[in-house]
Design a protein around this nucleic acid. Structure first.
Lengths: 367, 367
DNA sequence: GGTAACATTGACACCGGTGACATTTGTTTC
DNA sequence: GAAACAAATGTCACCGGTGTCAATGTTACC
């Protein structure tokens, strides 16, 4: 029972003091320093910082204390070089909405901060013909621990294939499950579209237009499908001339907004597939001297900053971007290629936020 | 003259072919592979990839070709470990405006992409009491090549002192020169404030309110000072009850906007120290059922996305964030502790963008 | 022809860790 | 009390480069 004494002549606290004295010049301690002070081999220290179970409890405690006292930090480069990995997480994005990207970043960093990993950002252009090569090089050269992908790059199968080939853990954020569960965070945009539809239907709208998002984004399809499904439940459908093709930019919303106004029999409401386009529609109305929501109810999607900056403030389906980032990062760290159960959530569902950009239609019994 | 032949029996192209054949299993080549194929020592290869002048021209060309052919990429970890540095650039921010941050990031990456360096992002909270320690650890542990600091962390002298102490190159982005020229990118916000003032004065405004930005941001002071200076040139001054203290957030603009409306004798124009607050003021007007710019002219600052999303679109002084990021990164790479001349620009000047949120005041002869 | 000066290259330890495997010590089993 | 085993720790080469300094071959100059 009482063992411990074998070598615990070593007084870790004293060792720490000794270091403080002998190191007036402020050299950063290395693993070797720790090992010498503790009277053990580097390997044992290595085991301690890597939480190996093969270490005596007393030794572990002592070394941990020593490490703390002298402020030792393992060098990620050296660690990475020896173990052929790195302590970097990549974020590959090509999303046009800055607010989305920043929120995702914050969410990821919420998790990374506790881990000692760092986030390397990598915006890219999916249309560039060097896109795949660039991404591969990035991942390979940096030996990334893992990568988080946002729409629309997250939807690129060729990229996913590369990740697999390189054996790099990755999490894809997308609006449907494109991959094995452990590799996905799904933002259920379809539900968001449905909610938006219900909202407008309940208000009494029947003549409803739809502005679709950029074709290369799967969310564009999901949001639309959800919306049409939702309307269908109320026996409403969107006629072809009420379906407009946008690209998720404010400018497209602006242009399409005025197109809507010019229609022979304009709708009483529009669902724009994101806030930026919804903001564009609102602006088109203003430019035309009309007053939303009286002239036209507008529903957006995302609830990023823009939604509350415009007037009237947007009714919109919220995409909890920061939370999505957090989930993605958490999942990355419990990433598991052995196929064990994963614990965390992996789906977010948009919540409809009702604000001022929607109201009952005029004709259908507005007050 | 004709030497070259000494050892150039080595056929680099053949060596490359040989590699392709013997490496069916797709191992990543290392410097050693290159060296062996080229029939030289690792050190010589090292010299080639580091552009050392101590290499024979023919040898250099040959090795460069070989490197390209077999797709060799030096390992940044190994390189960094040996030379006690890294190929990472840090971006430390605490700016509340996502659009600013993303644009700065893009600007930096525009430059980094050509270099092989990667960008590690590090938002922080200047008010946290571990802020300085966290930053120090980040820089020290990652051995950052350099760091770019944005307002307001860029204005923290204690942080700058740490950077110097760690011998880490850094660039501070701020609205005045707080440091040696080679360490600064100055965004001349004062001029922006002045331009805004001239604009309003020329329109005929005399009763002008001012919403100041967050006190902890130097830009807040500069924008205000510039604005007041500009007005002074027209013999106008801002009375104390027209000066309101905001914090650069939309919400503060919203709240202060309604305060302005409640004033006994309201101004005919407001200068909000950034677009977010200006957007808040516009919204306050809308909420109160008033119509800008007739009711009140509003000038913002920054010209980020928000400026064009709101209605009326903001007249504002543009902060070229992406360009600022670019300049900062360029400067970082020509950073020079020897005090040689620096070539690049290190100041940006805001440009006033006139849009729809300003017009002549009613009383003073509006049409 | 001898040698100094240069241009070019190489040898080798080392950066700070980890992996694979060996060793030591204490405990159990029979 | 020897064998067998488990727990705890150590040894040593190696990850893929760079720094330092020495070695080599050439050319220049007297």
């Amino acid at each position: 029972m009482v063992r411990a004494r074998r070598k615990s002549e070593v007084d870790y606290a004293a060792a720490a003091r000794q270091w403080a004295e002998n190191n007036k010049d402020g050299r950063k301690p290395t693993m070797r320093d720790v090992a010498e002070l503790a009277g053990v081999s580097k390997k044992t220290v290595s085991r301690v910082i890597n939480d190996s179970p093969l270490v005596n409890e007393a030794t572990r405690k002592g070394i941990q204390g020593l490490i703390k006292d002298i402020g030792y930090r393992p060098d990620p480069q050296a660690r990475g070089l020896a173990s052929r990995r790195s302590y970097l997480v990549g974020l590959i994005t090509d999303n046009p909405t800055p607010q989305y990207v920043v929120n995702i970043q914050h969410g990821i960093l919420d998790v990374l901060r506790k881990t000692g990993y760092e986030l390397v950002v990598h915006p890219c252009d999916r249309k560039s013909d060097t896109f795949l090569d660039d991404a591969r090089r990035f991942i390979e050269v940096q030996k990334l621990y893992g990568v988080i992908l946002t729409p629309s790059v997250s939807e690129d199968e060729r990229l996913a294939e590369i990740m697999r080939e390189l054996g790099c853990a990755y999490i894809r954020i997308a609006s449907i499950a494109l991959d094995m569960e452990r590799r996905m965070i799904v933002t259920n945009d379809r539900v968001g579209g449905r909610e938006a539809a219900h909202h407008l239907a309940k208000l009494g709208h029947t003549r409803i237009a739809l502005i679709a998002g950029r074709r290369s984004f799967r969310s564009s399809y999901e949001r639309r499908a959800g919306f049409e499904e939702g309307l269908a439940e109320h026996g409403i459908s969107v006629p072809p001339n009420y379906v407009l093709q946008g690209d998720y930019t404010f400018e497209s919303g602006l242009a399409l907004g005025s197109e809507i106004l010019d229609l022979d029999s304009p709708p009483t409401a529009v669902f724009a597939s994101n806030d930026e386009m919804a903001a564009g529609v609102l602006q088109a109305l203003h430019v035309a001297g009309q007053t939303p929501p009286d002239a036209l109810s507008v529903v957006g999607f995302d609830d990023f900053e823009t939604a509350t900056r415009v007037w009237p403030r947007l009714t919109t389906a919220r995409t909890p971007a920061r939370r999505i980032g957090r989930l993605a990062a958490e999942r990355l760290f419990e990433f598991d290629d052995e196929g064990n159960e994963l614990t965390g959530e992996n789906e977010t569902v948009p919540e409809l936020i009702e604000r001022d950009s929607t109201r009952r239609p005029r004709k259908a019994g507005s007050k």
